[in-house]
Write a protein that binds this DNA or RNA. Structure first.
Length: 219
DNA sequence: CTCCGGAACT
DNA sequence: AGTTCCGGAG
């Protein structure tokens, strides 16, 4: 799988710099859990709410009344589940690892297992935390990436781990490389390669079988 | 007012 | 298939 033309074109047209700015690792973890099935704007509101109540820390999340957490995360949707998951996450880190810094310094494979054992953290969320909060080279394979690769005629395996391996092999190994690629996928996915694609202005139009088909269809 | 899309997980 | 969903677009 050759991602070079794709990567070059996207870097020139979109660029993926300064992506996922957050005030510390806990904020990344919180954002990763809250952003499931919602927009990032809603997550920013929720994080601001948590900060205003001084709950953007493990002790606060672990001990706050669930009702208060629910109020904070309400704009992200599924707020009851998400409030519970945030609290469970905070308690898990405190009880199983002792502190945030001990949690973050856990060896990669064990850390990933610990993340996956949390309710509300699946493979994709675990990898986004590893990549953006911890700084370990795990590529995030999200729905944007799958949709884009499929339309480009390079559909990824359904199996997450298999898909991740395929992409990691095709990219320069490393945190910066994986962060940039993921950021480019998200930007392209949000701006052009949407569920209903905007092919005409897409920077990958001439590289994409799907896009060429659409253009021909529209004359 | 309805419909749909949203940094997915269980 | 449901999440005891939200916000913007149409």
């Amino acid at each position: 799988m050759d991602l070079e033309p794709l990567h070059t074109r996207l870097t020139q047209s979109i660029g993926g710099h300064d992506w996922w700015r957050a005030d510390g690792p806990l904020e990344v973890i919180t954002g990763a859990m809250l952003t499931q099935q919602t927009t990032w704007g809603s997550v920013e509101v929720a994080i601001r709410n948590l900060k205003e109540r001084e709950l953007m820390n493990l002790e606060g999340l672990a001990s706050a009344p669930l009702k208060v957490l629910e109020e904070c995360v309400r704009p992200t949707g599924f707020y009851r589940v998400k409030a519970t998951r945030l609290q469970t996450m905070a308690r898990h880190i405190l009880h199983r690892h002792g502190s945030l810094s001990e949690f973050l310094s856990t060896e990669g494979t064990r850390l990933r297992q610990s993340l996956l054992s949390m309710s509300g953290v699946g493979l994709e969320t675990a990898d986004s935390i590893l990549l953006y909060a911890v700084g370990l080279p795990f590529l995030v394979v999200d729905t944007y990436t799958r949709r884009i690769m499929e339309r480009l005629g390079m559909a990824l395996p359904r199996d997450y781990e298999e898909a991740r391996r395929r992409l990691e092999e095709a990219l320069p190994r490393g945190v910066e490389s994986y962060r940039e690629f993921h950021a480019l996928m998200v930007e392209l996915g949000k701006q052009y390669c949407r569920p209903r694609p905007r092919c005409a202005p897409c920077p990958l139009l001439d590289l994409c079988p799907h896009g060429m088909k659409v253009v021909r269809g529209n004359g």
